[in-house]
Amino acid sequence: MIEVEQLTKEYNGKKVVDQISFHVKKGEIFAFLGPNGAGKSTTVQMLTTLIAVSSGHATINQYDIERDQKNVRLQIGVALQETGIDNDLTGQELLVLQGKLFGFSQEKAVERAHELLELVGLAADGKRRSGTYSGGMKRRLDLALTLVHQPTVLFLDEPTTGLDPASRLQIWTEVRRLNEEYGTTIFLTTQYLEEADQLADRIAIINDGKLIAEGTAAELKAMNGAERIEVVLEDQSASEAFRAAFSGRIEKEIVLLPSAGTETLKQVVRYLDDHHLTARSLVVKQPSLDDVFIQLTGQAYKEDK
């Protein structure tokens, strides 16, 4: 569905996106994960024909993003990081206009506008100027505008950045629904590890313009080994012997032990019992994308709140 080969964008000699290659399958939810300034938005802008490519190439549904832009635009729906709404027009006017620009007749455009206002819960506000809408309402109108022509591929550039947790969940539900009900292929960028983990079938991690890993969440986590058990002992003088018994390691007061499921957990609990040790805390940690990021880049992952 989306094929990207060696795509590069240079600004003043600096490679903002540096020879990235990946592909997104039809019907997939693909997350482009990376910290602020990693090159996510630039990639989206290239793939959606908004800015020129410096080198490399990409196709969407077989259409080349440089040579066949009109067809690319017919395939894709794009919600950029910032909403694209003219405050002087009403929600209804904007939707009708959008439909007509995609070739709908007046009647068809009006019909579709009503449908979408209903869908995003703005039916009562369609006749008000969008300048009077709240931030959340504008986001929903923006999504509706993106869906007018029933795109087969949806690009969502940081759809939940800056949203409160409840609104974030709402967007997740909506994205899953679009994907399941209409089979829409979804390419989303995010700086939230959890979002990529929860939502995406596959994830590509981008840092400093370079693609550093790609795979399912499980595959990426597996790169960093299996789950582990983290224990903090009441009597920390026993930590060293405890660590050695399970060939783990110590970070500050925490003893980290490699784990192979419940069997290891049983052994750990038995060990503590046998040695009359009390654990101040004991947690089983699933490997996280956070760890993957640290391992690949040597730096902690920073989310921009």
């Binding site: 959606t48 024909t49 908004l50 009109k70 067809n71 635009r73 017919l74 894709i76 794009v78 950029l80 910032e82 909403t83 694209g84 709404i85 003219d86 405050n87 959008q98 620009l101 995609f102 070739g103 505008l145």
Partner: peptide, 13 residues
């Protein structure tokens, strides 16, 4: 500035 121009650029027009 409102981002609407980008939305227009994303249409096949």
């Amino acid at each position: 500035e409102s981002g609407y121009f980008a939305r227009l650029l994303l249409t096949p027009v």
